[in-house]
Amino acid sequence: MLIPHPLLGLRDSQEFTYLGDASLMNRPDPSAVTAEADFCDYVFLRDNPAGVHRELWFHEQGDRSWLIVTRNTLTHEILGAELARDLPARGAK
């Protein structure tokens, strides 16, 4: 596969390490009353759609950027890629 790196253009997927569902960016608030349940969902429950999926790829043999790649898991068509750090901060303070 070729990953359209937002800075570097098309790069072979062999340069990347795959992580999975981009929801891993949405780390729950550890101080919430429901923190334990929230983290349980966060850690163990992932979507695994047959179709369009937002997922995390790390450009390990490249510029070390984490990307959010939108990919159709059925066709491997890639609909876009963004730099994770450009997205609104999602981590709990």
């Binding site: 570097l8 790069r11 062999q14 340069e15 390990e60 043999q61 490249g62 510029d63």
Partner: peptide, 10 residues
Amino acid sequence: ATRTGLEHMT
């Protein structure tokens, strides 16, 4: 200048 893989080495 770019970083890439070469025989599995970065």
